[in-house]
Nucleic acid binder design. Sequence first.
DNA 1: CAAAGTCGGGG
DNA 2: GTGTACGACTTTG
Length: 600
Amino acid sequence: METIKIVLNDIDYVTRNDKPIIRLFGINPETEENVIAVDTTFKPYLYVLPYDFDICLEDLREMGLDDLEVETKIDIGTESEFIKVILTHPQEVPKLRDSIRDLPSVKQIREYDIPFYRRYLIDKQITPTNIIELHGETIDSILYSEELKIDEDVTLFKMMENPIDTHKTNKRNKILSFDIEVYNAEGMPTAENDPIIMMSLCGNNGLKKVLSTKKSDKSFVETLSSEKDMLKRFVEIIKEENPDMLVGYNSDNFDLPYIKKRAEKLNIKLDLGVDGSGIKFMKRGFNNAGVIKGRVHVDLYLLVRRNMRLERYTLERVYEELFDEKKIDVPGDQIYQYWDSDDERLEELFDYSMDDAVTTTMIGDKLTPLTVAQTRLVGQPLFDIARMTTGQMVEWYLMLKAYEKNNIIPNKPDTDEYSQRRKSNKVIGGYVKEPEKGLFEHIAYLDFKSLYPSIIIAQNISPDTITDGENMDESEYYTCPENGYKFLKEPKGFIPSIIGYILDERQRIKKLMKEEKVPEQKRAYDFEQQGLKRLANSMFGAYGYSRFRWYKIECAAAITAWGREYIRNAMKKAEEYDFKPIYADTDGFYATYIGDLNEE
DNA sequence: CAAAGTCGGGG
DNA sequence: GTGTACGACTTTG
């Protein structure tokens, strides 16, 4: 048996002989070779909570389901016995779950909507972007049919044992950005009519290139004889560079769909994927996500939207905000005129095209490290994390922790429940004291560090600790001001215990960061602690987010009610020491000292 | 006043 | 892909 290590970049599954095969895509950090590791042993499953065990087991067997196990899981604080129904193919889950749920002996079904590759990452406790150790053997592409035949320089590896997460970070951090310019004489271009005229590439290793069908003396311009050749060269460079991350700006919605359509129109194969596949699109919310199998495509536009607050999010505006510098600009609607001019304006267009890719790489260098840190915390693929909202990250993080702590995951709300939640999810916000007019001297500012996370822990606010307090002594629970919601003091709730862990972990990382001498590692710790902070701070919002699995509006309301009380009490206390509050908002207030400054 | 509709980025 | 989704803002009924 052989052992190899890979940086885990991507994961999916394919079907062969009606059975699923998990594929881990990675790069061997020593040889820089691409590896596809396959696992043929993992099976999909869901959980059933029965009314009556024996009848239910019998009913399930009658349906032809006989791979059944009994497991004890914690369900919102209470231990229950579940039947684990093991299936052979992931697509059986949506096919069978309705008929399983409808069995009279079935009370509930659980964990029936977790994508197969995500289930794999959670159950095997492996983390994308980490270095993973694999045991098995190198094989020929026997598992693959012709259309999926992989390149000769890709190692195919069959796993014989579970992968081992070494918890080591990828030292390699190669970013390659790309951008295209297209001919646009009639407003917004259409791939049907308008050719690509330039394709720019920029790596954080120094690579700078603009491919084009026109000539220039500029050293970064490479001229190709046709659009067809330009596209082929584009693919060739990406394969040669083999970056850890392929980044674009609005590339999910513009560049990649455009490149794909032009390639189809020109009848050429774009085998950009590590497995030889082309560009695919996945429907994700309101936009499509461009997928290149085995490579991590990150659209920076989404990261910018998530992490910056601006009036507009054009590449130009974002670059200016981050680097305090103007970028080269060519008005979008005039690109075709610059192209047709064949004079110095064409040269300007080459510079503009190059600059777009260069600034994209610079923005990528700034924003992707946090996304990588979040990937390592949440344990889902970088591709997915780059497209998740913070609420979704919290949820997948909790799902991972639920598995570790043997908690069964709550279901997502069905349509009825969801619309009901939407109607009644108004929660009173933080305490706000309108600022007093005037000019003040001797201003003091007090703020609660991570107010809401601290309240969740201090008052043990969790869906599994909420109680009506019946037949209990008052000392056994915390009572929320204003609304009277009650939360058990013991045992520690699922979410408070996880926030506690996150906050402790953050302190640990901050300490490591302070002691660290290597700047690169120091920076990595900084992003990790930022990621932890965001997770902790987003947990409150998640309680009030209608689609959240751990949704509990009472928890959200209790947190803000306690928050208002904390800050009012702090202000009262400050007044006792001659500080007059002049403005307050949610987790802090400003006060002016009105006592005698000469005293003491 | 709530429900329904639009739009972001890209050229 | 064990998917079907955002949020701020404006217009409409």
